[in-house]
Amino acid sequence: MTTTRQLEITGAGSRRTRPGIEWLSRYAAGTTLVVVLCIAAVVTPSFYSAGNLRTVALQAAALGVVVLGQTVALLVRGLDMSVTAVIAFSGVLVVSAGAPGQAFWLLLLAAGVAAVVGLTNGLLITWRKVPPFVATFAMLIVVGGCRLAYTHGQTSGSAPGWLRQLGSGSLLGLPMPVVIWVVLLIIFWLALARTRWGRWIYAAGANPEAARHSGVPVGAVVLSAYVVCAFCAMIAGLVLSGYLGYVDANLGVNVNLNSITAAIIGGVAFSGGRGGVLGATLGAILLTVLVNVVVVAGLPVYWQIIAMGVVLVLAVAIQGLRDRTIADGS
């Protein structure tokens, strides 16, 4: 259509967003986490036993790595529903063909799968203009189907030593998965906050048209986001299968939705361009802690899922209110 030619006059003093909402949307995950940790200290002191904390850390690490990638996909106004399948398939590949001395080739194979999945997702979305949900969901079915065709539903063998080392070894007293997670977190934080690529990710998500006008190669940036996301899923798959020592159909089964939930709770906007990996990581920790506290407290398992659902709806409500005050204010 033709351009609007309405006389648009932006007053200098646009109304302020309510500071409370702004604060909530930024620090909700952290605040809730602190509250939950305090409650846990009172109700279930055993949460703080060394063994349990280690478990929490390991679980949070696997989810946390995926959340990093999912956050990047969300930032460019997308989402990735195929992470579950990539986790499981890359796990299967490295575990089942586990002859010694093949580590390098297996890793290369898993990386190849991640690259193909990420590129296909990205191309469907940027080039074929398929809605991200549909594109990545189609990939979920295909990659899941590949895994099933490859394994015939069998639980896959035993993990080779180097993979076990990756999953349950430790470095400087820290569990290996946590080390990997923290290293990746630092890399992602630096990449998003301190590189040109990171700026492009935010710009392409916040306003693709304006980004294009500002010389941002929007298509390539969005494509890269899905490749990055697929690689995160692959790494999580390796870590998880190394930790468990085997791979079955349940590997990573809830990670799809949990990773999106964690990112949203952590203040990443579903509408793109806003939020960051630090918040999303807090979201991942919060989710893991919630689930664990329920178990340690001896509550029925379903409380986990109910708690997650409630936290998510609250997070969404805060974001919705924030967007609304912004829309009113400008």
């Binding site: 351009t3 609007t4 935010y202 306003n207 048209e209 304006a210 006008h213 361009g273 806003r274 912004i326």
Partner: peptide, 12 residues
Amino acid sequence: EDRKTHGILAEH
């Protein structure tokens, strides 16, 4: 021409 849609990234 259209500042809102093509020019600025409003939330940054």
